[in-house]
Design a protein around this nucleic acid. Sequence first.
DNA 1: GCCCTAAGGTATGGCGTTGGACCATTGCCT
DNA 2: AGGCAATGGTCCAACGCCATACCTTAGGGC
Lengths: 270, 270
Amino acid sequence: MSRNAPGEPGDGPQEDAPEGAPEDAADGARDRLAPVLRPVRTGNGFEEALEQILRVLRLGLVPAGERLPAERELAGRLGVSRVTLREVLRVLHEEGLVTSRRGRYGGTFVLPRAEAGGTRDAGGAAELRRRTASVDLEDVLRFREVLEVGAAGLCAAQGLDGAGAARLRAALAGTRDTPPGGYRRGDTLLHLTLAELSGSPTLAAQYAAVRATLNDLLECIPLLVRNLEHSQRQHTALVEAVLDRNPEAARERMREHCAGTAALLRGFLA
Amino acid sequence: MSRNAPGEPGDGPQEDAPEGAPEDAADGARDRLAPVLRPVRTGNGFEEALEQILRVLRLGLVPAGERLPAERELAGRLGVSRVTLREVLRVLHEEGLVTSRRGRYGGTFVLPRAEAGGTRDAGGAAELRRRTASVDLEDVLRFREVLEVGAAGLCAAQGLDGAGAARLRAALAGTRDTPPGGYRRGDTLLHLTLAELSGSPTLAAQYAAVRATLNDLLECIPLLVRNLEHSQRQHTALVEAVLDRNPEAARERMREHCAGTAALLRGFLA
DNA sequence: GCCCTAAGGTATGGCGTTGGACCATTGCCT
DNA sequence: AGGCAATGGTCCAACGCCATACCTTAGGGC
């Protein structure tokens, strides 16, 4: 659905492409083109905008009770017209995810998930299952690990300035004192912070996309206390390695951390 | 221009975000949203399709003299209508990049770059300069290294099947016996092959995008024979490490390889 | 208490894109 | 030689999205 989201497993036949004469490669070249020739602008702009806003909500970037940016700004940021954006917000309102207030200091506010009535759950769950089924799990897990390990390595290698280090520490702290059930939001924010601090906006954006997909998948499996504690230790060690400017250690910590999640997901979903 | 291409350096103010009260984070949250709230569908579909085809040409995925996929297939793959695609091809034809032949076994063929007359060079060079200026060099280099190192690590860690190993060896060989001036095409194909073999289609697609940007940048700097020989040795060592299923070595080789290119580009463009 | 401002709510004309159908051309195969 | 099939070339009605302007609501400041 989203162009950013990894997807479309097995998009075409995966021939061996035995590197024949480069001249008759008309058919052999077709596979080569696969990574580049992907659908431009999948679906209508409405769906893409919806996906983006949903991503913001799923990542917990705007917690319940908080306000989304104003319609005009949001539309501008997403590159769609306000009409289209409003269509998106209307859907989200019908799903019980947001509510709008007029007047100055009004806006569109995020509702707590629990408030969602029957309609949302039915549609949401179906949507989730549909989305989950269409995702290439291995693709997601591999890509995620590459980005995460890369981000950790970059942060550790180049070092963080004072503000960056503070943000990272704050994000780590945010994973501890967290409301029950809000752990994954803290976890997401910590990893996203690291991605942002890597100094590559593209990396951060790609990570946000893949993380949203990952969160969908994680919602399908139970949250185990043991894993949680384990994760916490790993997070601490990871942040330490980054702040110590030890790239090898940071990468290795992150690799282990990702491997844990990956094993969990493979076990529950494979 | 392309949503996949890294870009838009410094999209907004980078406040410290001192993790204040989460409730008044209305303004503080804005920065958090930056990675997610990127323009959906930058520009019209026409421009995106043009970008994709240009990417195919710049990456050398379809060498001069070869045929692009048929219009109907290309349009289908890119997710645009045939009318729009034809508009793109018309522009490329006017720029002297491709030519079309009707009838069965006809199609749209790629022309050698040298054939380009005055019009193309003028427009092309201007376009290149514009694009180059708008690219965040550090973003590109960092993201590229992350993807490359990740791909190398994945390939080495999971091992390649017979066909994969053969493809990799063939791609390596393709960097040696190459027509003069065609070295970068071989280099691109080798790296792209590795990305494809990583088992993450998303990674491959992202690499293709960033590599296209990188190739644009590389065209601004001279090709040094010493670097070329050095690259060749690194390529050989890299492929060896991958085929030996030695992830650490593969990652390290790739890291060195990327560092070389990065230093070169920083030196010439910084 | 008035007015200004920032926010959501609404309506309209225009342009790009789509999907389909059809024609024109060319080379291979029977 | 004829037909077939794959390809580029052309046209058109319908739809979606966009840009823009304007209205309505509500809170704060003078």
